[in-house]
């Protein structure tokens, strides 16, 4: 589904990635972990063609991004939905218009069909229909995340990129969001790439993940495989009661 090989990223003289490789399979929820500033968002931006890596290869849905043409790129863009770290809803459009905008531009649906779809997306992410008439500045932080997810889902994407979907949410809201992602995967069969710091999400929804540290991927695999890593950052990250409990429950101690 997604193949990242030997990606190097440099901003001026600052090296952010130095040979990042990972591999994401169809239908899985894949986590990208790492401390603040380790280049998770930058890696995601490279996957969605907002940035080009300095070196290395990325292929999405079998299409290599280095050699992609304009029309191919445009077609590829419609196959994924992106939830940005800070929502990035269009501030001059209502929530409903935010969700509708791509449908209007890229499909031949009637107004009534678009309306039904907008409502179905709002239902899927657990927002009330009346929220559709509000503007982004009138929403709470958690509602912005949900609305942004609804917009990401508008084109029925095969692939969903989520940048810290649960950061800034209360614990209950965060768990609901996790449940929502799992449910969406079951419903729509989407592949989800999620950047997260949230240990709850890591343990409950993520199938496989990779950990970014020292400018590269220091561990990749399921949670059990990650826990066997002896890299200092991985040990630090997972050194807490949560992991302790998980290990006890799964007889790893």
């Amino acid at each position: 589904m997604i193949r990242v090989e030997g990606v190097v990223t440099r901003f001026g003289s600052r090296v952010i990635h130095d040979g990042v490789s990972l591999h994401i399979k169809r239908g899985e929820i894949y986590g990208i972990l790492g401390e603040s500033g380790s280049g998770k968002s930058v890696l995601m931006k490279e996957m969605i063609m907002l940035l080009a890596p300095t070196a290395g290869r990325i292929a999405i849905l079998g299409t290599p991004l280095e050699t992609i043409g304009v029309t191919e790129a445009q077609a590829l863009r419609r196959k994924w939905g992106v939830l940005f770290q800070f929502g990035a809803l269009f501030s001059s459009l209502t929530i409903a218009q935010n969700i509708e905008v791509q449908l209007k531009e890229y499909t031949n649906l009637t107004r009534k069909m678009r309306q039904a779809l907008v409502h179905s997306k709002l239902t899927m992410v657990g927002l009330d229909a009346s929220v559709g008439l509000l503007y982004p500045s009138q929403l709470s932080g958690g509602m912005v995340k949900r609305a942004a997810l609804a917009r990401a889902l508008a084109m029925e994407p095969e692939l969903l990129f989520l940048d810290e979907p649960t950061s800034g949410l209360d614990p209950i809201g965060a768990r609901n969001f996790d449940a929502l992602i799992v449910e969406l995967r079951a419903l729509l069969g989407v592949t989800v790439v999620v950047i997260t710091h949230d240990l709850d999400s890591v343990f409950t929804i993520v199938d496989r993940m990779s950990v970014l540290a020292d400018k590269r991927v220091v561990a990749e695999g399921s949670i059990d495989e990650i826990l066997t890593s002896t890299h200092p950052f991985v040990e630090e990250f997972f050194k807490n009661e949560y992991t302790q409990k998980y290990r006890e429950e799964h007889h790893h101690v």
């Binding site: 209502t94 309306q115 409502h119 239902t123 229909a129």
Partner: peptide, 21 residues
């Protein structure tokens, strides 16, 4: 089952209320 689940989720959705002011 997937179609059934999607139907269950969406069939109560209110799709008639307008989305434009």
């Amino acid at each position: 089952p997937q179609q059934e689940a999607m139907y269950q989720l969406l069939h109560q959705t209110d799709t008639t209320s307008p989305i434009e002011p």
